[in-house]
Design a protein around this nucleic acid. Structure first.
Lengths: 200, 200
DNA sequence: CCTACCGATCGGTAGG
DNA sequence: CCTACCGATCGGTAGG
């Protein structure tokens, strides 16, 4: 009888996965509970035995991703390395998470706006924290003379915007996640910021 | 009596502007005709004297933007210059259009998926054309030895993803559109691709 | 996990 | 440009 409980857990997980896929393709607002139900092979009403609301699905999806990014940033900061190398670690973090959770990551791009208060504030808070720590690495890189004196906000923005869109690109180019691509992406994103004497 | 017709035209334009702003903030699916009506100071039913459907609003907004991008690409290709300089022209094009139509441009990021057939195919066709012409400039830049031998798709993607997100960044940093920022953005986007002997 | 169903709200129309 | 209103569909509940 342990199967009873574990089935319920995996069923919930399945609902989350199907919901993420539908939210990504159709958007949160346009995705109906009936669509999610059909995808998981049950009636809409039955979903509510596993979850409490559509909003809860969005929350769990987004906060699971946010938590992974925060944890990754923790590890980056603890690295015994310079700011530039920490930034390269973060590029790999984004690649790894995008490969693991492409559908969930897609929600970070736009559907988070459908989060309701107070979860919305909590989410944007986590996001701002992450960006602030990212920004500090750029500032530090410039201070330590590893990086060009480019406007910090501009550098931050140009790197993060590409990282946020990785999911759509990796989806269109499957099997392209190689060491070569990882290296070239770092060159695209950081090459314009890196001082030439730091080029590997 | 010319005021009659011109009022009607500007009224339609006003509806489009308000719709764009709401679509951007709330998303197409979650924006109701009643919200658009309130924003323009009329009842929902009255909107239909100026437009025929919610879908039509999305179409007009997206195709007006697409047309500007296509026209800009035409001008870029006619430039008497190398591929790298044409790419820099396109960065300016994106900045210019983003400043002119921040709300419409925002729809390019995600809400275009709510376009219905056959407009959806027409739109993605225009978008693919634009990307193909962008891609050709990168290929040409590598062939003419102006640019590093980096995976073309990766270069294309890293540049366009940042350009697509300009609207959210420019919105958060008003008054930052200076020649200095334009130059630094080109450095961020193209610096990693440009061969060092081509650095200005 | 299902059948049956509800109140709310949606995009849009009729008629003036 | 408004009042009045419609059919469809939404997220969610009751009860088993």
């Amino acid at each position: 009888m342990p199967s009873r409980k574990s089935n319920s857990i995996s069923r919930r997980e399945e609902i989350l996965e199907k919901a993420a896929k539908l939210f990504r393709k159709t958007g949160y607002a346009a995705t109906t509970m009936r669509m999610i139900a059909t995808a998981t092979g049950m009636e809409a009403a039955s979903l509510y035995n596993h979850i409490s609301s559509k909003q809860e699905l969005l929350e769990e999806l987004l906060f699971s991703v946010a938590s992974e990014f925060t944890g990754g940033m923790d590890r980056a900061e603890k690295l015994n390395a310079g700011p530039l190398e920490k930034l390269e670690f973060l590029v790999d973090l984004h690649i790894d998470l995008t490969l693991r959770w492409p559908d969930r990551i897609a929600l970070v791009t736009g559907d988070w706006v459908h989060l309701e208060e107070p979860k919305l504030s909590a989410y944007t808070g986590l996001r701002n924290d992450y960006e602030q720590r990212f920004r500090s690495l750029i500032t530090e890189g410039k201070k330590q003379d590893e990086m060009e004196d480019i406007n910090t906000e501009l550098g931050l923005f140009s790197i993060l915007s590409t990282l946020h869109w990785l999911y759509s690109w990796l989806g269109k180019h499957p099997g392209l996640e190689t060491q070569k691509i990882r290296k070239e992406l770092k060159q695209c994103l950081l090459g314009g910021l890196r001082k030439s004497e730091y080029t590997k």
